[in-house]
Amino acid sequence: MSDNVLKLRDRGGDTEKITINLGYVDLGRVDLLVQEGFYSNRTDFIRTAIRNQLAAHADAVTQSIVRHTLELGLRDYSRADLEAVKAAGERLQIRVVGLARIAPDVSPELALDTIDSITVLGALQASAELKSALAGRIR
């Protein structure tokens, strides 16, 4: 099933919103850089800062992904994938850095029969019913 893993682009249409608290002085410095034209807006500054930090720690991230046997990028789990896992008498430990998606036609029963655990550093997209059924297995 590893042919079902896609590398996510660094920039894309799918994003996750985060909220941060920033001190007034730091916020003023960001606004000053925006005003001076170094960045188009606060979001541009924050994205650039995050990308710079990720680039600075790229080796550590790569080593951690290998050490923890995580899949990097977009990982889709279809109903057919999970039915094949069930037919083989196997169970999944889903471990993704990026985005893990479980198809909307996967029933809670099938998910419970085939998924032992889910660890996603990023985002998990699945129906509310599926997330509720798997709540005890999501870390």
Rank of each mutant, 00 (worst) to 15 (best):
A49R: 05
R29I: 00
A111Y: 05
S78R: 12
L70S: 08
D105S: 06
A49Y: 05
Q63C: 07
R139T: 14
A87M: 01
G89S: 01
V66P: 04
I115W: 07
S2I: 09
I118D: 06
G136R: 05
L124D: 12
L72M: 11
E36L: 08
R137H: 03
D105V: 10
Y24Q: 14
D26H: 13
I102W: 13
L6S: 13
L121G: 13
R79E: 06
V66Q: 15
L54S: 08
A100R: 06
D76N: 11
A58D: 14
L72C: 08
F38K: 06
L33Q: 13
G89Y: 03
G23F: 02
K86I: 02
T43L: 04
A56L: 03
M1W: 11
I18N: 01
G13D: 13
L22S: 01
I46T: 05
A58Q: 15
I138H: 03
S2R: 15
S64Q: 12
L110K: 01
Q63Y: 05
E71Y: 12
V30N: 05
R29F: 02
R11P: 02
R29M: 04
H57S: 11
S2M: 14
A58I: 05
V120E: 09
D113K: 04
A100K: 06
A128V: 09
A133P: 04
V97C: 11
R95F: 04
E71N: 09
A123K: 10
E71H: 14
